[in-house]
Amino acid sequence: MARESVRRGAGQCQAFWAEGDLDDSVISLLSDTSALSLKSLRLISCNSICDTSLALTITKFTLLEELEVSNYLMDFSKTCAAAGKACPLLKRLRLSSGRFEDCRVSGDVEAAAIGTTMPELRSLQLFAKRISNGGLAAILDGCPLLESLDIRHCFNIVMNDELHARCSRVHTLRRPHDSGGPRIFGKINLAHV
């Protein structure tokens, strides 16, 4: 069904969202047919897709503005690096693990890729990832336009005074232990309240 949807899009597909049983061949077909029109790619629980092949394919989506890779058990650092270099319009990135990751192990490879290749990023969600304070600092340094940051269940991050101060420029922040709505920093425009 996914292959047929891509074919029927006739090269005009601007958003492709998939959940479940999807493999690399569908993403490859999408890149062959709609590479110059795709703006949003969301892959949720598509466990047959691997980081290496997605990293190769994503370089064709130069107009991509939104990327989501959610509910996976692996890291997608190669995909993050490739997307950051090939997709200059990328504004929103969502990465989440399929389960809560072991907090004793640090995993800042994705964070380093984001911080070094995505300076135009406005919205970032890293849910249940193993990043540390150092990885978050790399993101904050490399993504100066970040407006929304969701790091819920990233339990390797310890929100100390220094990190709180660094995050104060981010308008909407969801911290590692947050469960409710986002916390808003900055000025409130009373005309919109």
Score class of each variant (00 low, 15 high):
I157S: 04
S168K: 14
A137C: 13
L163C: 11
A113P: 05
F127L: 09
D178L: 00
E147R: 03
N133S: 03
C143E: 10
A128E: 01
V158D: 06
L146P: 00
K78I: 04
K85V: 05
T62H: 02
S40L: 09
S179E: 00
S123T: 07
D32V: 12
G135F: 04
G107W: 11
I131C: 12
H171L: 10
H164P: 02
S31L: 08
E101V: 15
S45F: 05
A165R: 15
V193C: 10
L29S: 12
A2C: 10
L22K: 02
R92N: 01
P144C: 06
T116C: 01
A18H: 10
S132W: 06
P119T: 09
S34C: 08
V170C: 12
P144M: 03
M159E: 01
A191L: 12
G186D: 12
K60N: 01
C103D: 15
A165L: 15
R122C: 01
I27T: 04
M74S: 12
L126A: 07
A128Q: 05
H153F: 13
R175I: 07
R166I: 15
L36N: 08
L29V: 14
V105Y: 13
Q14F: 01
L90H: 00
K60H: 03
A15W: 10
L22G: 01
S31P: 07
K60G: 02
S97H: 05
L95N: 01
F155D: 14
L90P: 00
R94L: 09
T117S: 02
C103W: 15
S148A: 12
I151L: 13
L63A: 01
L89E: 07
T57I: 01
I131D: 11
R175N: 09
S97W: 05
R92V: 05
C143Q: 05
L95Q: 00
G142T: 13
D21M: 13
A18W: 10
S5I: 10
L73P: 13
R42I: 08
N47G: 12
T79I: 02
C103R: 15
S28P: 09
F16A: 00
M1H: 08
C103H: 15
S45C: 08
R174V: 07
N133G: 05
A15S: 11
K91V: 04
R175H: 09
K85Q: 02
R174L: 09
V158C: 06
C13S: 06
K91D: 04
R8W: 07
I131L: 13
A165D: 15
L64V: 02
D32N: 13
F127D: 03
L145V: 11
F185W: 11
R174Y: 05
S48A: 11
S37G: 06
F100Q: 14
L63T: 02
G20K: 11
S40M: 08
V26F: 12
I139L: 08
F127N: 04
Y72S: 07
G11D: 09
A191T: 12
R99T: 15
A128S: 05
H177I: 03
R169N: 11
L36R: 07
I114L: 00
I44P: 04
N133C: 06
K129D: 02
A111Q: 12
F185C: 10
R174A: 02
G107I: 15
P176K: 09
R166G: 14
A111S: 14
P176G: 09
T172Y: 05
R174P: 00
C87D: 02
H171P: 02
S96A: 13
V105F: 14
R175P: 02
V109A: 12
D141K: 07
F155S: 13
A191G: 10
M74P: 10
